[in-house]
């Protein structure tokens, strides 16, 4: 996991606050941020948008054989989470009973340490999700926070 620091720093807005993209032309949301809308391409108009922090489990697994850097956490739960706006992302599921981790279980984002780059290296933080007992947890829809043209360099 060498050279983690620049990557950790670059992704802070996305990993800390679920900052994604919204296409004003077709209305689709994307996470992480995309420079170009795959549906509209040149006609697309991409702006930044915070994703909702609640959703449900779309699929899940319990990882027994952990990759380097995650040995101490194994076994751990991973899921594809479907956010309330339909966007899918991959995340660990933490602070939840194993039996509660099922397809369609309601989840919400929590902020956690993800990994560290050796003993003295950078610590990476970001989102994980946990199952919420009360499925009626209020959803705060994301709102645009800035503009960014697809025609800008990238």
């Amino acid at each position: 996991m060498a050279q983690l620091l620049p990557s950790v720093w670059r992704h802070i807005p996305e990993r800390y606050s679920l900052l994604g993209s919204h296409c004003e032309n077709c209305g689709k949301d994307y996470f992480p941020q995309r420079p170009i809308c795959p549906t509209c391409r040149r006609k697309g108009k991409i702006v930044q948008k915070l994703m909702p922090r609640e959703g449900k489990i779309f699929s899940h697994t319990l990882v027994h054989a952990a990759p380097a850097g995650f040995e101490l956490e194994a076994p751990y739960h991973l899921a594809i989470v479907e956010l309330k706006n339909g966007v899918h992302l991959l995340s660990q599921i933490v602070d939840s009973d194993s039996e509660a981790i099922q397809i369609n279980s309601p989840v919400k984002m929590v902020f956690r340490k993800i990994s560290e780059d050796g003993k003295q290296g950078a610590i990476a933080y970001g989102y994980k999700f946990k199952v919420v007992r009360n499925a009626a947890a209020a959803s705060k829809p994301g709102k645009p926070v800035g503009k960014q043209s697809t025609s800008s360099k990238k």
């Binding site: 699929s59 697994t61 054989a65 990759p67 899921a79």
Partner: peptide, 16 residues
């Protein structure tokens, strides 16, 4: 970065 492995990615497909 989140702790996925190739078996885990295919396990997510299998579970669904």
């Amino acid at each position: 970065f989140m702790g996925a492995t190739f078996p885990a990615l295919y396990a997510l497909m299998a579970k669904r």
